[in-house]
Design a protein around this nucleic acid. Structure first.
Lengths: 180, 180
DNA sequence: AGACTCATGTAATGCGTTACATGATTTG
DNA sequence: CAAATCATGTAACGCATTACATGAGTCT
C-alpha cells in the first residue's frame, strides 16, 4: 500500500504525544510537522476513521462535544516502525522553486537576477522561521525530541538553496559581463 | 490561477527546444526535467489541448500517425516569463524523506542508524545520477543551457541531505554511548 | 507477418485543498 | 446572550498516477 505517509505521520504524533483527538492532531500537524508534511482536518478526520477500522488506533467513547480520543495500538506502533525501517522514500520531488531554477536560463540576465533575489528573500524568511523554531525547541527539554532531526534537515536544505542563489547570481553576472 | 506549473514547464521546453509533439514533450520531461517535476503523457496531452484552446501554443495540422506539432505563441512566451519573474513559489514541502527524519527519534538507536544508512545510500545514488547528468551536460555546448542551474541546485540539496545523514548518525551514536 | 516504436487519447482511482455545514461548550 | 473556540464531519473540485484502449508506421 502506498499513500501511507499521512497514516504514519498521525501514528508518530500519537506515539509521541499520547492519546489525542482529531482536533488536537490537526493542531499538532500545523504546529510541529508543517515544514515536512501538511494536512487539514478534512483529510485527517476521515483518515482516523479508516485507521480505527484497520486496527491501527483505538477510539474511546465520544466525550463532551463529540470529542473522540484516539490511542495508538500495538499494531499501529509496529506498522509505523516497520514503515520507518523498511520503506525507501519515493524520491519524487516536485518543487516550484526548482522549476523556476530550471527555466532561469530562458530569462535575460537582469530578469534572472531579479527572480533570484526574490527566491533568496523567500528562502531566507523560511530559514529564519525554522531557526526560530529550533531555539524554542532547544529551550524546552533536551534530547530525544520528535522533529528535532527534521528541523536540522530543513535548515541544512534551506541553507543549500540560499548558497545556490548566491552562486548562481554570481555566475549570471560573470557571463553577462564577459571580461573584467 | 494556481496549478500553473505544468503549463510553464511545457512552455519552457517548447521555448527551449522549438516546436514539438506531445510525445516528444513527454520524453523530454522524463529525460531533462524529471528531478524537478514529473508528468506522464496522460496528463500532458489534455493539458496541451487546453493550452492550445487558451492561445498559449498553436497546433499544426496533424501529420503522419496523427502527430500534432505544437509551437509556443507570443502570448505563451509572455505568460511563461511573467510566471518566472513574478510568481513566488509556494514553499509547500512534502517529502517522505523528511517525514522519516521527523519520526526518527521514535526508533531505538540501532534501528535509527539502520534507517539513516538506507537513506544515505538512496541519496548517494540519486546524487551520482545528477552528477552523471551534469557531465553529459557540460560535454555538450557551453553556456546558457536549460536545466543547468536546476542541476546544480539538485546536487547542492542532495549534498546537504547527505551531510545531514552523517551528522545525525554521529549524534545518535554519541547519545547512545554517553561517556567516552 | 509479427514485433516494436510512435502517437494520442480516456477512465478509474487516490491524494489534497477549499468550501460548506452543523452543533456543543466556554468565556466575557 | 453573544462571540469565540472546540469539535466533527461531507461535498466539490483539481492535480497526478495507473490502467485501459486504439491505431499508424517501421523494421526484421
Amino acid at each position: 500500500m502506498v499513500g501511507m505517509s499521512l497514516r504514519v505521520a498521525l501514528l508518530g504524533l500519537l506515539s509521541f504525544a499520547g492519546p489525542a483527538s482529531g482536533y488536537d492532531l490537526t493542531k499538532m500537524f500545523t504546529l510541529t510537522i508543517n515544514h515536512v508534511w501538511q494536512a487539514k482536518h478534512s483529510q485527517i478526520y476521515p483518515e482516523l476513521n479508516r485507521m480505527a477500522a484497520d486496527g491501527l488506533i483505538s477510539v474511546a467513547q465520544p466525550g463532551p462535544r463529540g470529542r473522540k480520543i484516539y490511542t495508538i495500538t500495538e499494531h499501529g506502533a509496529a506498522t509505523m516502525r516497520d514503515w520507518l525501517v523498511s520503506h525507501t522514500p519515493s524520491g519524487t520531488m516536485r518543487s516550484e522553486q526548482s522549476l523556476q531554477a530550471f527555466l532561469l536560463p530562458l530569462l535575460e540576465p537582469p530578469q534572472a537576477l531579479e527572480a533570484l533575489e526574490r527566491m533568496a528573500d523567500a528562502t531566507q524568511a523560511r530559514l529564519d522561521g525554522l531557526e526560530e523554531m529550533k531555539k524554542v525547541h532547544m529551550s524546552g527539554q533536551g534530547g530525544g525530541d520528535i522533529g528535532h532531526y527534521a528541523l536540522d534537515l530543513g535548515i541544512m536544505q534551506l541553507r543549500a538553496i540560499l548558497a545556490w542563489t548566491h552562486q548562481t547570481a554570481d555566475d549570471i553576472r560573470a557571463s553577462a559581463a564577459p571580461d573584467s
